[in-house]
């Protein structure tokens, strides 16, 4: 299935990656090429086959639902590009 310019724009937005209008054609062509390669999967008879959900057969371990960590606010904020007064800072969301 070929990807057109509009789909490329939509996919870029879904992925939250800014793509300039002038680059959308190229992107659409690249993505189409990759998808074409994946088209081979349509040849496989998957009737009655379960999709893989676990790589090795194992039951997921459970643990007590309790706090095991915490009290490390400054460590968590240390790598933030912008943090003030103990918070992550982002552009204004609500007017």
């Amino acid at each position: 299935m070929a990807i057109d310019k509009d789909t490329a724009r939509r996919v870029a937005h879904l992925a939250r990656i800014r793509v300039e209008e002038t680059e959308l054609e190229t992107l659409a062509r690249e993505l189409s090429g990759i998808l074409e390669f994946m088209e081979q999967l349509a040849e496989v008879d998957v009737e009655g086959v379960e999709p893989m959900t676990s790589v090795t057969p194992m039951a997921l371990k459970r643990r007590k639902d309790e706090v095991t960590d915490g009290g490390i606010r400054d460590k968590i904020l240390a790598n933030a590009p912008d943090a003030r007064d103990g918070f992550f800072t982002v552009p204004k969301v609500v007017e």
Binding site: I3, T7, V11, A12, L14, A15, I17, L27, E30, L31, I34, L35, M38, L41, A42, V44, V46, V49, E50, P51, M52, T53
Partner: peptide, 30 residues
């Protein structure tokens, strides 16, 4: 990385999930 993240977003998006992602997971079982 941009290319792969966008391809990933596409194959997981509504309308294409079954055709690509789900089918690929079945092929993986095989």
């Amino acid at each position: 990385v941009r290319r792969r993240v966008m391809i990933g977003a596409y194959v997981l998006s509504a309308g294409y999930y079954d055709a690509y992602y789900l089918r690929a997971q079945k092929v993986r079982t095989l």
